[in-house]
Amino acid sequence: MPISAKNAPRVGLFVTCLVDSMRPSIGFAAIALLEAAGCVVEIPRAQTCCGQPALNSGDTAGATEVAKHTIALLEGYDHVVIPSGSCAGTIRVHYPELFPAGSPWHARAVALAARTFELLSYLADIQRFQPQGVALQARATYHDSCSGLRELGIKAQPRKLLAKVEGLAITEMDGAETCCGFGGTFCVKYPAISNAITEEKTANIKASGAELLLGGDLGCLMNMAGKLHREGSPVRAFHAAEVLAGMADGPAIGEVA
């Protein structure tokens, strides 16, 4: 369904704190893709973090304070789009749990949850977007990050979009749906356990024969790319949005321009 300028949705892009600090190119890729899909993209100025560190540490009061900030910031948009399954899952699934049912904040959280989407599933499912004229000669493998997969049902969407990239072949690795060992603060609280999990993951990535590792969550990608680099593997990692936006000719995660 082509969208005319008149009914083009006003999309608030929430890039996540990791993309903001670690890899802005994912944010720019998201802008490019959303605009190509016909959206009017705005970047809410006061955005910071969705609050996962507090939420996953059991600091409900802290998470609630951050959630209120984010809800007030984002609730004016037609849609809110986030290039991360776990941050989108936080807003869609966990924000409403923070407030007592029947309270005004609960209603606002539920309303925002219903309008909030992870980028790749938003492009594929809501905008029925198909990338055009993007080419990349490479063999890639795709890691399904856990929150996106199990909280939001993201599995086919990134593969469907990536299938339109000319020259790109996706080789599925063993255990594509197995957790990479990141787990947010888990990976620094329990580094040895996290490392053992990640080692199994990188072994599967390497065994797939892929040159590129793709995914939809920067945290997981940094974890796997960081391990691959420590192991001396030549596999390079990108967020799928960067590939779809034709930006994979630039530096991969950890590479210098």
Binding site: M22, R23, R45, T198, P251
Partner: peptide, 30 residues
């Protein structure tokens, strides 16, 4: 482009490298 070790980041860098952060944040660039 990579950090092999850094004070306070041992939990991460003991087992894996950390990609260097951006020179300027996304929001600053915007």
């Amino acid at each position: 482009g990579w950090i092999r070790s850094m004070p306070l980041a041992g939990g991460w860098t003991r087992h894996r490298d950390l990609p260097a952060p951006a020179a300027r944040s996304f929001m600053d660039q915007i």
